[in-house]
Design a protein around this nucleic acid. Structure first.
Lengths: 127, 127
DNA sequence: TTATAATATTCCTTGACGGGCATATACTTT
DNA sequence: AAAGTATATGCCCGTCAAGGAATATTATAA
């Protein structure tokens, strides 16, 4: 298992991370609060630890797990270009859709409901 | 397949999304540029479309796929609390590690390399 | 030392997903 | 109409990861 996304694909692991936001937790606390059998919790924590999402501290027989920011920060970095994308292009996209809409209204009288696969655009073909 | 994370767990799908950052692309363009067999590309695009990551426009025989911001924005929203976490606690964490470090240096002469599972903390036990 | 608590690991099974290939569908050009 | 182009879909298979149950490990308590 490699990428941060694969790690976070598992809902229980996301729940564990969200729980660790409040404070560090022992395996037993996670087990009870999330209603996940203990071996499953340990396995998920193993995956999260190996991927650097959490670190563990030994306290007698139990281990206290806490968040470790780095992998999530990398994920955040991966998202950055997309953030730029939608903040740069959102208004332009709206204008584009408006234009499309108006063109459709000009070429047809009936207002067609928006389809998932949108109206055919003019295909460039040799005349 | 449900959550955005599951969708993005697939490296090819992330590559496709990253490619669509520049501009909309046809299936064939993606196929050639990423060296993925065409049926695989179509399948990934199907998954991305069903999850709302992309939308398609018909142009003659081909389909032009473009980014759709919403699911990635939701992902970004999921990350928000963690961003707060690491910006709030990073300095505090550093101070904490410093304290730990100093304590270790006081209790032992040899400087131990940082372990993944950290030094045992004082366990509360009845004396 | 024995018992008990907390956590980790192993083994097994099952289900889902991605890849490959063949084929279907839709549109266009001749 | 026939052939060609672009994309989608169906099927089969190998792989891999998650869940469950039992057990091992480590630390404490009696």
């Amino acid at each position: 298992m490699a990428s941060a996304f694969e790690i976070l694909a598992e809902p229980h692991r996301r729940a564990i991370l969200a729980m660790l936001l409040a404070s560090e937790r022992s395996v037993g606390e996670i087990e009870r609060r999330l209603r996940i059998p203990q071996p499953a919790v340990s396995k998920h924590l193993r995956v999260l630890r190996d991927a650097g999402f959490v670190t563990a501290t030994v306290d007698a027989q139990r281990r206290l797990y806490r968040l470790s920011p780095q992998p999530l920060q990398e994920l955040d970095a991966w998202l950055a270009p997309f953030r730029r994308f939608w903040s740069l292009h959102l208004d332009a996209l709206e204008r584009h859709l408006d234009r499309q809409q108006r063109a459709a209204e000009l070429s047809a009288h009936a207002s067609r409901p928006a389809n998932k696969v949108r109206a055919k655009s003019a295909s460039r073909r040799k005349p």
